[in-house]
Amino acid sequence: MTRAYQCANVSDPHPGKVATSASVAAAIKRAERPVIIVGSELRHLDWALDLAKEQNIPIVATAHVAGAMREKGVRPDREMGAIEITNLLKSPEWDGVRGEGQHDLAIFTDVLYYLEAQMLSALKHFAPHIKTISLTRGHQPNADQSLPNLSEKKMGEFLAEIMGALAES
């Protein structure tokens, strides 16, 4: 069984699944209104921006990540705090980042591990309408599906495989 990256972060009698690149690609394809949430660790920003562009997925910059995106010539769809976007995602009345309706899939990347664990927990308990994927450093049991614990090199490969699987489909 895959353990949480921060090993004491075990809270749930029903932990989420360990993701494969194929399962992530399938979930993204299946979703009607996905959203990408990019946090402050900035380890895979280019990948997240590529995914947003290629799949036309709105992107939310948390913390001060919007500045880093602007340096790359990208304007995020929204910029807001991690807890603020989580709060909006759990509200059935919210119209989503582009005003097209509440999202049905949230993809998290590069948020601080322990903060993201709390965001995912909030959505798991209070947002049954939304599925979650964690592509941040290490396994997150609170996500519906999350990366296994991978080295930086393997993680890069994993993310590239997701793009490949999406391109094929």
Binding site: S11, D12, H14, Q118, A122, P128
Partner: peptide
Amino acid sequence: PFYAPICDMCCLCTYGKCDLTE
């Protein structure tokens, strides 16, 4: 209040642990 549970259970009495998910 915005809640982000750090534990999905309650372990405070001998009925527990109680699973509070879903």
